[in-house]
Design a protein around this nucleic acid. Structure first.
Lengths: 94, 94
DNA sequence: AAATTTGGTTTATTTTATAAACTACTTTAT
DNA sequence: ATAAAGTAGTTTATAAAATAAACCAAATTT
């Protein structure tokens, strides 16, 4: 009847991150912050969770002397998102 | 860009409850338990939250001497659900 | 009549989300 | 040159949520 909602994706901010990344080659911390409207702390934590789960790849470098974090969705992340979309539809019936 | 997800509905169990009730005249505790697969305690708590928010109406009676809880979605609940569906679509793009 | 089941509620615990505080460095104004 | 403010984050503390476990009252089964 109702499909299970992957709790890692069933979070407003993490869903927004993945949803943003799915349409893009990659996105950096600042861009994600603007897109999602999240605070830096919250974004940092949620990026870390998605990274740990293998749903996104995170690359930390320096742009000049400033830190720079780039995120990219992985194939696993893409699959998980597709599954989530499928699951949530069992609730909203679309 | 991304619409806000009403936190009261952005909960697997509460969403399942509302989603069930939206298609029905009413449903009782036992039925909701079966549909959602939730534990009684969890269901009890989440029904109470939806009730408090005005999203569902709850009627407690006795069937013989056994307690019997009936739930019905309210107009407010219906509207909130529609808004939620609309909002979640901004993430899943359907 | 003891044990189990039914239909719940209440309370306690764990998990999660979020905010606040902090670090490290850079840029701007004085 | 130095203080103040801004950027790009991370870490830690707190609040809120979900969930499980314990419980209650009545009914049913053994």
């Amino acid at each position: 009847m109702f499909k299970e909602l992957n709790p890692l994706l069933h979070s407003e901010l993490r869903l927004a991150i993945i949803s943003t990344l799915i349409g893009l080659e990659s996105a950096d911390f600042v861009f994600l912050r603007k897109q999602t409207g999240a605070t830096a702390g919250n974004l940092s934590v949620q990026i870390e969770k998605l990274n740990k789960a293998g749903y996104i790849a995170v690359e930390k470098s320096f742009k000049g002397k400033m830190p720079h974090t780039t995120c990219m969705i992985t194939d696993e992340g893409r699959r998980a998102f597709e599954d989530y979309v499928d699951a949530i539809k069992s609730y909203i019936g679309s």
